[in-house]
Amino acid sequence: MSRLPRPVAIALLALVVLLAAYPLYGAWLFPAKHAFLMQKITGIMILAIMAMSLDLLVGIAGMVSLGHAAFFGLGGYMLAILSPEYEAANIWIVLPAALAIVAAVAAIIGALSIRTTGISFIMITLAFGQMGFYFFNDSRLAGGSDGAYIYVMPAVEIAGISLMNLENKLVFYYLVFGLFIGAYLLLKVLLASPFGRVVQAIGVNESRVKGLGFNPDHYKLVAFVIGATIAGLAGFLGAAQYGFVNPAMLSWHQSGTALVMVILGGMGTIFGPALGAFVLELARMGFEGMTEHWLLPMGLFVIAVVLLLPKGLAGLLLQLGAKPAPEPEDEA
C-alpha cells in the first residue's frame, strides 16, 4: 500500500516535471497569460500543500476536520502581524515563530477536539474554525474584517547576504514548488515511520489500536498538530504571495474547499488531494473563463465526480495503473 504502482508513479513524476519546467515553456506556450498563470500555479501549489496536510487528518487518521483553514489562516496572519510595516521581516525569525504559534494553537484545539469522534469531531473543528474566523473578523487586531497588508516580502539572508529574493516571481515559484514537493515527501516519510503506521491503523480501526496497547489519543494529537502546522506553512506562503490576509482565509468555506480537494482527489493517498487541488482550481479557472455563473458548472462538476468516481481521482488512477490482479498464492 505504501508503494505506488509503476504507471501511476511515472505519470505523477511526469506531472511534477511539467510543473518544474513550467517557467521554461510557459511564456512560449501562453504568451499572453504567462505571468498570470505562473501566479495561479504558485497559488494552486500552496493550496495543494494545505490539501495534503488535511489528508493526513482526514484520509489517514480518520479525523474529518472542517476547521483546517483556521491553521492556514493563522499561518498567514502570523506573517502579517510579525512583519514590520515597511521593511522586510527576517524569515529565520518570522517563519519559525509563525509555525510555532500555529502548532501551539493546534495543540490546544486538537487536545480538546479529539475527545470527540465522527460527526461531533467535524462539528467541533468547525466551531473552533469559526471562532478563529470571528476572532480576526471582529477584533481590531490586523485590520478586522478588512484584513491586513504585508507590504514587503520577508528577506531570506544569512549574515547579511541575500540567498533568494522572494519578490522575484520566479524565485517564489520555485520556493513554493520545493516546499510542495518537500511536504509530499515529508508526509510519505512520516507515513512509513512507526508513528505513521500507528496513525494509519487508527484510521482503519481505532479501538483495535487501543487494544494493542497504543494510546490513540497521543498519536491523533500529534498528527493533528503536524497537519495543522503544514497548513500553517501553506497559509504563510499564501499570505506572502498575495501580500494580503483577511478573515476569509480562516472561513469554513476555505476548510470546505480543502476537504473537497481531499475527497475529490482521493482520500488517504496524499498525492490524490494534491491532484484534487489542481483539478478543482483549474476547473474553476476554466469555468470562470466561460461564464460569470461559473459556480453552476462547478457544482455540477463536483456532483458528477462524486457519482462517477467513488474513490476520487487517485482511485481512478490507481485502478488504471494497477497490475493485473495479483495471483492468489494458494496454500498447498
Binding site: 474529518v64 457544482g299 462524486v306
Partner: peptide, 26 residues
C-alpha cells in the same frame, strides 16, 4: 450514495450548494 462513505455525501451536497446558490442568482 447511501452505501458510500459519509464524506461522499458531504461532497455531493457541497456541489448542490454551489448549484443552488448560482441558480438563485440566475
Amino acid at each position: 450514495l447511501y452505501k458510500r462513505d459519509h464524506l461522499d455525501q458531504v461532497l455531493l451536497t457541497y456541489g448542490l450548494i454551489l448549484v443552488f446558490n448560482e441558480a438563485q442568482k440566475l
